[in-house]
Nucleic acid binder design. Structure first.
Length: 205
DNA sequence: CGTGAGATTTCCT
DNA sequence: GGAAATCTCACGT
C-alpha cells in the first residue's frame, strides 16, 4: 500500500512504459486519506517526435505545458467542451511525451467512484460496466479535473503502484482511438479479452 | 443492436 | 470558423 513507482520508471522509452503500465494500479488519495484505485487495462502512447496526433506536436501552449515537464507528472486536459482526460508524462523535461490512460478495472473505493460519476453509490450492472471504461469516464469516477493537472506522481496524492504482473501474450495493440492523424501508428495497448477495455471505435482514414 | 446529433472550451488556420 | 486523444441520449431496426 502507498508505494508509488520511482521517478526512474518514467524515464524509459515511452512505448515500453505504455506496455508496462498495463496491469498496474492507478491510485488517487482523497482528502480523508482513503484510496481510490483501478487496474490499468488500456493506454495510448503519444510521442514528442513525428507524431502529428500528439498535443505536443506543435510546441508548448498553456493547455499542454505539463506535457513538457519531466517524466512522472500528471497531464490533465479538457476537451470537447466537457470532458477531462489524464496522461502520464514520460522522458526528460522539454520532450513532450505522454501516455493517455484509456480504461481501468475499478478496485478500491468503487462506491465512491460510483457516486462521483453517477451521483449514487448503487449501480445497475450496465452502469457498473461503464464506470471506468473510457478516458473521460475514469477521470470523472476518480475525481480528476484541472486541479490535478501537473501533479507529481512521485510523492503526492496520485501515483502508479505495482499490480498483478501481465505477460506479453495478454497484451494487444492497435491504432489509437478518436484521432484522425497518424492513424496507422499502432500505439494503443490493451489487455486481450478484458471486459473493462473501452468500447470506443477506431477511426479510419 | 446500430447510427447520429448535441454539449461547449481550447487551440489552430 | 471549425475541429478536437469523448460521452450520452434519442431514435430506427
Amino acid at each position: 500500500m502507498n508505494n508509488p513507482f520511482p521517478r526512474s520508471f518514467y524515464f524509459q522509452d515511452v512505448q515500453k512504459i505504455a506496455r508496462q503500465l498495463l496491469g498496474h494500479l492507478f491510485v488517487k488519495i482523497q482528502s480523508d486519506g482513503s484510496r481510490l484505485s483501478g487496474r490499468i487495462v488500456e493506454v495510448e502512447a503519444y510521442a514528442h517526435n513525428e507524431d502529428p496526433a500528439s498535443h505536443s506536436y506543435r510546441g508548448k501552449t498553456l493547455r499542454n505545458a505539463v506535457m513538457f515537464e519531466s517524466g512522472g507528472h500528471l497531464y490533465v486536459y479538457f476537451t470537447y467542451g466537457m470532458h477531462y482526460c489524464c496522461n502520464i508524462v514520460t522522458g526528460p523535461e522539454g520532450e513532450g511525451n505522454a501516455i493517455l490512460i484509456r480504461a481501468l478495472e475499478p478496485l478500491e473505493g468503487k462506491n465512491i467512484m460510483a457516486y462521483k460519476r453517477f451521483g449514487k453509490d448503487t449501480l445497475s450492472a450496465k452502469e457498473y460496466s461503464n464506470l471506468t471504461n473510457g478516458p473521460a469516464k475514469l477521470c470523472k469516477a476518480m475525481g480528476i479535473d484541472r486541479e490535478a493537472n501537473g501533479l507529481d506522481l512521485c510523492g503526492s496524492t496520485c501515483w502508479i503502484e505495482k499490480g498483478k504482473e501481465i505477460s506479453d501474450p495478454q497484451i494487444a495493440c492497435s491504432s489509437r482511438v478518436g484521432i484522425h492523424r497518424a492513424v496507422s501508428l499502432p500505439w494503443r495497448y490493451y489487455l486481450k479479452d478484458c471486459k473493462w477495455v473501452s468500447k470506443a471505435r477506431i477511426h479510419h482514414e
